[in-house]
């Protein structure tokens, strides 16, 4: 797999990748999961969807990944899209327990009709990127929660997708593992130069990872506001302890409070 070492363009200059236009989703029983959601995703963005549970974050991802049709509105990909343009990571690692680590990572290719021999190099390359090349023949149950999540990430990036969707991927992990995975995710993104939409309800995670935070509110699910985190990448420990980080976190917290209906 081609590792680009992208230098991501500054926020205002990135070409668009996809646009959500006036997307509504109404479930039976009149649950308005999304109301008039507009979002332009640009190439190289790291976008966090931040909001209380029930505000339609997962629904937005399901609509983007075509698992669900919007009730109204549409999703336009710049130049269309096909198989392999999308990688997804769920809250659970979602690995096939009967398959080894490398077989799990092979899956997107296998479903596209490619034999293991054809894509072995790509599979091993992404396993190396997530630090699991030694575990290619292990079964998921032999791995820790954090390692399983790395396999899941490896599978999501193996096709070199244009967009990666992550739905609260680290929410079930312990604080230390989550911290480490956050650091590694940023490094990984810098190496492969992809675009990420990352769902979280952690203010700190969203500030540390992303350059755009989309704050959402519930009942009806909607976009409340968007914040930019203009701190440069690479970000590491010094960013986590900086005044800049604290200021961004405060802004995001206030927006989140407003989203939850409390006075800021």
């Amino acid at each position: 797999m081609a590792v680009h070492h992208h230098d991501t363009l500054p926020l205002g200059q990135r070409p668009p990748l996809l646009k959500l236009r006036h997307v509504d989703k109404v479930f039976s029983g009149d649950v308005v999961a999304l109301k008039d959601m507009n979002l332009q995703v640009n190439q190289g963005d790291f976008i966090s969807l931040l909001g209380p549970s029930g505000c339609g974050k997962s629904t937005a991802l399901r609509i983007i990944s075509d698992l669900m049709h919007p009730t109204r509105g549409r999703v336009d990909w710049e130049g269309g899209h096909g198989r392999g343009d999308l990688g997804v990571v769920f809250q659970e690692p979602t690995l096939m327990p009967w398959a080894t680590v490398s077989q799990n990572v092979w899956l997107p290719f296998r479903l596209a009709g490619k034999s293991y021999g054809e894509v072995k190099d790509d599979v091993l390359e992404v396993l190396r990127l997530v630090g699991l090349e030694k575990f290619q023949n292990s079964y998921p149950r032999e791995l820790s929660g954090g390692m399983k999540m790395r396999v899941s990430i490896a599978r999501a990036i193996v096709t070199n997708p244009r967009l990666i969707l992550m739905d609260e991927p680290f929410a079930a992990l312990d604080e230390i593992t989550r911290h480490k995975l956050n650091n590694d995710l940023l490094k990984l993104k810098a190496q492969i130069g992809c675009t990420v939409i990352f769902v979280t309800h952690s203010v700190f995670e969203s500030v540390f990872l992303s350059d755009r935070i989309v704050v959402m509110a519930a009942r009806p699910g909607r976009v409340l506001t968007e914040l930019e985190v203009d701190a440069p990448y690479p970000r590491g420990e010094e960013f986590r302890t900086s005044a800049e980080y604290a200021a961004h976190a405060r802004r995001a917290s206030e927006a989140l409070k407003e989203a939850m209906g409390e006075p800021a």
Binding site: S65, R83, L86, V88, F90, M96, L107, P108, L111
Partner: peptide, 19 residues
């Protein structure tokens, strides 16, 4: 979630059954 993943990767009916 695995079922969704197979859908996202455009798995055929047969692939879903088999794998």
């Amino acid at each position: 979630n695995l079922r969704d993943l197979f859908r996202i990767y455009g798995a055929t009916r047969w692939q879903r059954l088999r794998f």
